[in-house]
Each structure stands twice: as C-alpha cells, then as structure tokens.
Amino acid sequence: MSAGPYVLRVNGNDHEVPDAHLGESLLWVLRERLGLPGSKNACEEGECGSCSVQVDGELVCSCLVLAAAGVGREVTTIEGLAPDGELADVQRAFVEAGAVQCGFCTPGLIMAVDTLLDDLPDDGSDPDDLIVREAISGNLCRCTGYGRILEAVSIAADLRRENRT
C-alpha cells in the first residue's frame, strides 16, 4: 500500500516523502529516501542501537519506528545534532576520549548519550556509573569495550554543565 506524500520534519527541515510504502521504517526513509545515512543499519531489529535517533527528544531505534508515525513530530538524527561545520558537546567528547574506532556504533551512541545528558538532573554532580552504563546498554559497540565511551560520557557531561552555567 502506498501512502500519499507525507512530510517529515527532520533536523529542523521539512522533507516531503513521495510514493512511500506505509510499512517503511524511519531508518529506511532517513537513509534511502532523505539522503541521511548517518543513522546505521547493524541489526534492524532494535538490539544494537546503531540506528538511534530522537523523536520529540525521546530516544528511539529508528529501525523499529514507522516513518509515517513521525509525521507531525520533530526527528533529530546525528546529522542534526550540531550546525554544519560544528560539533556538539557529545561529538567533541567522543573524538577527544578516543571513543571512536570503526565508528559504526558511534552515531547511535552519541544520540543515546545526548539523550542521557538531557535527562540527567542538573545538580552539578557526575553521572553515576551504573546509570550511564544502563543508559548506553542498548547500544552495542564491538571495537572499544566501552571504556573510552564511558570516558567520553564523563567529558561530555562536563562540557554540558559548563554550557549551562
């Protein structure tokens, strides 16, 4: 069944999606129809988190969400986390901490960490290790063993705190 054209708002821009099959996942539409391949395709069944994006600020696996369900909502992908040519705090932290190796899990993890930092209480304290581990446990990384990623979370938390104060 083909849907009429619908409009998805992604990274602050409206994109018309013509001739789409209603069953298409948000991941597919982002990657193959809208030219936004930053969200990755490692398992396509919601286990690895590499396709993570924010829908109205909430972290979702875009492989499990129908694109058409995103109509009227605000979708943020890795491409939209910072203005062109700039890096968001979490992105800077990942580079600085050595949290990137092959990089396939990286966009999804950055979206997960960005969401985590948004949700943490703004009381100046370091995020609890178990809370951080739990928050990123839906994102598989096969290269790093997570050590440098946890370090990146710590750096990013500091950057965000500085930005708030």
């Binding site: 391949p37 930053g38 969200s39 890096l87 580079v95 050595g98 990137v100 990089g103």
Partner: peptide
C-alpha cells in the same frame, strides 16, 4: 603521542561513508 584519528570528526557527525552508505 595520543594523536586524534583523522576520521574521527566524520565518524562523529555522521558524514563518514561506510560501505552500506554508498549510493
């Protein structure tokens, strides 16, 4: 020295083209 990866920035901003991103 702990030099940063030259592909680090493209990998964190989503612009690094993996083999599944080719078009």
């Amino acid at each position: 020295e702990s030099a940063p990866r030259p592909d680090g920035i493209p990998k964190v901003n989503g612009s690094f083209a993996f083999s599944s991103d080719l078009w």
